[in-house]
């Protein structure tokens, strides 16, 4: 263990709420891009939601797409600039509700891009509405009595949706604890590597706390992740270098 310095790619303080997992994910991603010497060639595609706050503070090239369409934009970029490292960075509402089709079809075509989906089970930027990933019974501003799966469906599990697809890499990590953050970095590195080696589409879903809209303390949010969220969204690597694992 040597020094731990904040990556230079984080050019300004982030704009997220206290305890928001995006800050941690931003830092881990910046570390990976710096360690792999990809910052100069990286182009990120964000859309709409809290994730897009990072385009002022995370020093890579960015394109901001319409809500949900980041994957389609990333495909367009990568197809004309295959020499660049192209990634999407989106929340769960953005990528899995309005953008489900674009997210899935990028994987169906095994586009040589890397997708990061931050799953905090809620629409953060708009003030805490129900997301496709909200848990049964979860109280949100649009499910004040708790999410009713008979009305809104069970939590959408993007890993299960993509497991049958011929993609290069598929993993779900978490920022719910120190150990999980260390693992997450390995997953991100693996997903990025798959693109650099031309193997194709990689997706890392990242479980992340939203203490503000969950209306919880940080401790309460971390406990909720460990006790409840992970039951619906188990972590691990599900496809590695195109090979399906039994994680």
């Amino acid at each position: 263990m040597t020094e731990k310095r904040i990556p230079k790619t984080l050019v300004e303080d982030n704009k997220f709420c206290p305890g928001c997992g995006h800050g941690i994910i931003n830092r881990v991603l910046a570390e990976v891009l710096e360690e792999m010497e990809l910052v100069d060639m990286a182009i990120g595609s964000v859309a709409v939601g809290c994730a897009c706050l990072m385009i002022d503070t995370f020093g890579t090239d960015w394109v901001q797409a319409a809500h949900g369409r980041a994957a389609a934009v990333a495909c367009g970029i990568k197809r004309v600039r295959p020499e660049n490292f192209v990634f999407t960075y989106q929340g769960d509402g953005d990528s899995l509700a309005i953008g489900f089709s674009e997210t899935m079809y990028a994987a169906v075509r095994n586009e040589n891009i890397t997708a990061f989906i931050v799953n905090n089970g809620i629409f953060g930027m708009t003030g805490g509405q129900m997301a496709p990933t909200s848990l049964p019974g979860q109280r949100t501003t649009t499910s004040p009595a708790g999410k009713d799966p008979s009305l809104a469906g069970q939590p959408l599990n993007i890993i299960n949706q993509m497991r049958q697809l011929p993609i290069a890499y598929l993993a779900r990590g978490s920022v719910g604890s120190f150990k999980e953050i260390i693992k997450l970095k390995k997953y991100i590195k693996a997903a990025v590597t798959n693109q650099i080696e031309g193997k194709g589409y990689g997706l890392v879903e990242i479980l992340s706390p939203c203490p503000t809209n969950w209306k919880m303390t940080m401790r309460g949010a971390l406990d909720h992740m460990g006790d409840n969220v992970k039951n619906f969204f188990p972590t691990g690597e599900f496809i590695k270098e195109g090979v399906h694992t039994d994680a």
Binding site: M1, H22, S177
Partner: peptide, 16 residues
Amino acid sequence: GVCYTVCPDYVFEIIE
């Protein structure tokens, strides 16, 4: 370095 790793706001650094 655990604090560096978990901090969402880049407060801590470990330096030599």
